[in-house]
């Protein structure tokens, strides 16, 4: 039954729609408006339920190329997760360690991780780019970026 991609995706969408609807029905009411804040969300929620059901029964009309996209080798998935993890660490440390340091390290390691092997160029670019942006934002435009632990 659940062989087709469409039916599997539609089940996920159905779950999203139901969760969204549950929260929609819990919205507090406000007395001074004709159409309250919960009306549109409820309409959207039920619309998604309806569309998900349609999708469940619809024929899979993807082209071969589109299907091919989903065949990602294991190694490549690791690659994506790795970059995702780097981004996550970046966000986590941005306001703790400061913009220049974390950005430079991010660019350097992310490029290295993706297979860039000119370490010197990589180092120069990562530091120069981060320092340039930092300088332009903070000194020229007076927009503060986190300075962090560097004595700036």
């Amino acid at each position: 039954m659940l062989k087709s991609i469409n039916s599997r995706v539609s089940l996920v969408l159905l779950v999203i729609a139901i969760v969204y609807l549950i929260f929609s029905y819990q919205l507090p009411s406000y007395a001074y408006t004709e159409v309250d804040a919960d009306v549109i969300p409820k309409v959207l929620g039920w619309l998604l339920v309806f569309l998900a059901i349609l999708l469940f029964f619809s024929k899979d009309n993807e082209t071969e190329a589109q299907r091919q996209k989903r065949n990602i080798p294991k190694k490549e998935i690791g690659m994506l997760l790795g970059v995702g993890a780097l981004i996550f660490i970046y966000i986590f440390l941005l306001e703790i360690l400061g913009f220049i340091l974390v950005s430079a390290l991010f660019i350097f390691f992310c490029s290295l991780f993706l297979g860039y092997r000119s370490h010197i160029v990589n180092g120069i670019v990562s530091i120069a780019f981060s320092a340039f942006i930092y300088f332009v934002f903070t000194s020229l435009l007076q927009i503060s970026l986190p300075s962090g632990i560097l004595p700036l």
């Binding site: 690791g78 690659m79 790795g82 780097l86 974390v102 390290l105 991780f113 632990i149």
Partner: peptide, 25 residues
């Protein structure tokens, strides 16, 4: 090897963080 790289990135940053916390205090 990739995992090591991520770990290294994290390590360096944590190191930098620790090295400086005294000054902040």
């Amino acid at each position: 090897k990739k995992l090591l790289l991520i770990a290294l990135f994290f390590f360096i940053i944590v190191l930098a963080a620790c090295g400086n916390s005294d000054d902040a205090d």
